[in-house]
Every structure is written in C-alpha cells, then in structure tokens.
Design a protein around this nucleic acid. Structure first.
Length: 397
RNA sequence: GGGACUAUGGUGAAGUGGUUAUCACAUCGCUCUGUGGCAGCGAGGUCAUGGGUUCGAGUCCCAUUAGUCCCC
C-alpha cells in the first residue's frame, strides 16, 4: 500500500508511493480540499490540467448526500469521480467540526486555532456537547450527533480511498488537562473506528485505507504518548491533527514522527503554506492538505516563485504580462494576462467573476503541484536541503 | 441682462441644527492553515470659497466662484 522509495540522508524527508484503489500518489504530495465533493469553478478536466494527484472531501458536508442516496451504492463515489476525475480521494472524519461548530463564527475559528484569541474569554466550547460516544451539536437549528461509528459508516458510503478516524481536536487555548481528556477520547474513538472499519470492509472489493490521528496539543509528553498509542494500532497510516500557534508545527512534528512506524504514510492535517510544506516534509510528512491554494485563489492571491501577488490590486489593471513568466499552468500557457484575470475577478457579474476565480485556481493548484514535483525531484537527487533553502530565499511571504 | 437649481472622501449618492459625517463602487493596507459561493477587516472626506445667525451649522442667511437649465 505504501512504499518508501528513498530516504533523505540529512533530514527525515522521504520519497514514496501511496497506492490506493483509484491510483498511486507520488509522495510527498499536496492534497487539495474539495469539501463538498467538488472544487468550486473547476471541471474535472481543469483539475487534470493542474497535475493534481489527490483531493480531500469532508464527511460532515457530504452527510446530506449519504442520507439522500441511502439505498443506492457508490452513487456518491461516482459523483466525486465525475467532479474530480479518476483520482484518489480522502475524506476527513468530520472531527474538525467539533471545533469549528463549537465556535460557530468562522472568522473566530482561525483566531482560536492559532491561539491569537488568548485574552478573549468568549472563546468557549459552548455550542457542542462532547460525550464518550461522540459530539452532540446544533446545526441549522437541528440537533445532531456525530461519533466514531457513524463517521466510519458515512465514510464507507462516500467511498473515498483514504479515510480518517474520528478524533477530538483541541485548540492552543486548551489546558493540559483538557488535552489529556481529549486525548483519551481520541484513543478510545480510534479503537472504535478500527473495529467499525473492519466490519465495513468485509464485503468491499476495493478496501479503503484508514488513517488514525495523533493529537496532544502543544504538550510534548501528550504528543509522544499519542504517537505511541495511535502508532501502535493497526492503522494503514497516520494523520497528525491539532492546531498550532504559528511556527510550532515543526516542533510538534519532531516530537511525534520518531514514534510512528517508518513503513506507514503520514498525513499532516490542514497545513500547507509554502514554508510549512518544507518543514513538514523535512520532518517526515508524506501528504498534507490545506485550503490555502484554493481559498486564496478565489480571493485573488496568486502564487509565484518570488511570493504571491494580490491580483485585485489596481496596479495590475494594465499589466499585460502573464502571472509568472515560464509558468506551465493552464492559465499562463493560455496567456491569460494579469490584467484580464483582474478584470474578471473584480467583475460583479457572477459568471465573469467565476471565470476569474477559475484562472486563479488553476494557476495556484499547478503552482503547488509543481513545487511538490520539484521537491520530489530534489529528494530523489539528494538535494532537498539545498532546494528548500533556494526556494525559501526566493519566496517572500 | 433676468431667474431657477446644484456644489459632501477618486466617482455616484445619503444626511428633521446637536456626541468621533453615512452608503456603494474605486484606491491603498492587512488577513486567510482538517475552507466554502462576486471573501473578511481596516485606512483616507470637516462637507466649493468667504462672511453671518446660533450655546452649537454639512444642515439656516448673505456674497463670491463653478456647473446645469429656463427666459430675454
């Protein structure tokens, strides 16, 4: 299922192949986010043009579909394949909603996650109730419940290639004691997920892959404890979860990675700025997903080797150059100028605006896929460190 | 020559005389890390100019200037 092709001599970076029922992922690889089972504004052909290898959708957001297609098998998987193309797909467990729904205001979640809201006492986990069995919460005025068994059942029906166990994420604002409690639940739920998963896979032709999730917040002993316990369970791979204040990702990874089995793949959940990618890979991460390339594309931020540009700025209104000279993305190859992209994305017309977003999406996704391709080459050539230094020196964030 | 109307950030508009002048678009700046639908947050006006009335004027009065329209 997972094959390590080469290990970097100076770092923990590694080159690998992650084999799934719907294709092989060359690792390290970026995983793009298609929460609702599609990438907004992109057709499967567009996605193909971005060299995307794998996409992650969200169980929580696809829940409705599972309900409505209760009796017809593989309908959702077929729909995902229709939207994404024939690609390996991951599904997140819905565990993250434990956090985001608890704070409902989406703008606050970010702050909550990065710990920037330390002084604000209104950040309380007040809108949900977490029990031994899972999480009770209100959504659109409806009382709902999601737990490990249900998450596994839903994920089985959605039909992704790689599934994640239902975990309990914490925030940098949570105390040691709270993290301890959360960790106990994550471990307990992990076992339930494994059991449920085994049952679900019995009659499946193409077995789905299941990743367990390491938690433990920003506490070294809890992280190590979690890596050891989750790492010793018979998962196919491991997700690394949590939320971090800026620049703590590498530190946490250094605690965890030594305690995870070498032969199994590791996925870092929700992280993916350019600098973070290098830190993650350097510390032994194989895949990672993040909304940054797609969300920022929709907001008009385009990535280049020297940093990003905010294409909506007036400065670009007469800029006839393509986004980046030498870029092989569909947008740049089609010679869509910065001025044109700006004109479209600034448009109040829905259709035109969507076209602008599409050009940006294709550029950014290609940019990140290309970067990862270069990283893979650098590991293959034994020059990862040099490539990291060269790239980050040039790239100004 | 006579009369009417208008004059508020870059643009277009709102503003019964009373705390830090409102909105949209544009501009500039910041943000986005297990997203979800033309993103969010923030900055820049002292209200054409000069006087006057008033405790207090963008808001009332006068003059000047500019523009639009009408009459001769």
């Amino acid at each position: 299922m997972f094959e390590v092709l080469k290990k970097d001599k100076r770092t923990k970076a590694r080159l690998g192949l992650l084999k799934t029922p719907h294709g092989i992922i060359k690792t390290p690889s970026y995983v793009f986010v298609g929460t609702y089972g599609r990438i907004l504004h992109l057709s499967r052909n567009d996605i193909k043009n971005t060299k995307t290898q794998v996409i992650i959708s969200n169980t929580f957001h696809l829940w409705d579909k599972v309900e409505s297609y209760k009796n017809s098998k593989s309908v959702i998987r077929n729909e995902l394949t229709r939207n994404f193309g024939k690609l390996p797909i991951m599904t997140d467990s819905g565990g993250f909603q434990v956090l985001s729904l608890a704070f409902s205001d989406k703008n606050k979640v970010g702050k909550f996650m990065t710990g920037e809201a330390k002084a604000d006492k209104s950040y309380k986990r007040s809108k949900i109730k977490i029990t031994e069995k899972g999480v009770h919460f209100l959504f659109n005025g409806k009382k709902m419940f999601l737990g490990p068994e249900l998450s596994m059942k839903l994920q089985e029906k959605i039909g992704a290639d790689i599934l994640f166990a239902f975990d309990h994420i914490t925030s940098p604002l949570d105390t040691y004691k709270y993290n301890q409690k959360a960790l106990r639940l994550t471990n307990k739920w992990a076992k339930i997920c494994l059991k449920e998963h085994a049952t679900n896979q019995k009659n499946r032709a193409n077995k789905q892959i299941l990743f367990g999730i390491v938690q433990g917040g920003l506490f070294k002993d809890l992280r190590i404890q979690s890596a050891k316990s989750i790492g010793s369970m018979p998962f196919d791979g491991f997700g690394i979860g949590g939320s971090y204040t800026k620049k703590q990702i590498a530190k946490v990874l250094k605690w965890i990675i030594p305690h995870l089995p070498e032969e199994k793949p590791r996925h870092l959940l929700g992280v993916g700025k350019v600098e973070d990618i290098f830190e993650a890979i350097e510390n032994g991460v194989d895949t990672f997903d993040c909304v940054i390339p797609t969300r920022e594309a929709r907001h008009g931020r385009l990535y280049t080797k020297t940093g990003y540009i905010d294409i909506r700025r007036g400065y670009y209104s007469k800029d006839k150059k393509i986004t980046e000279t030498g870029c092989g993305c569909f947008t740049c190859t089609k010679k869509i100028s910065r001025a044109k992209i700006r004109e479209l994305i600034k448009s109040k017309d829905r259709i035109l605006n969507a076209q602008g977003q599409r050009w940006c999406l294709m550029h950014n996704m290609w940019f990140f896929n290309n970067l990862l391709e270069d990283i893979r080459k650098s590991i293959a050539g034994g020059k990862f460190k040099e490539f990291k230094k060269k790239t980050l020196t040039k790239f100004k964030s």
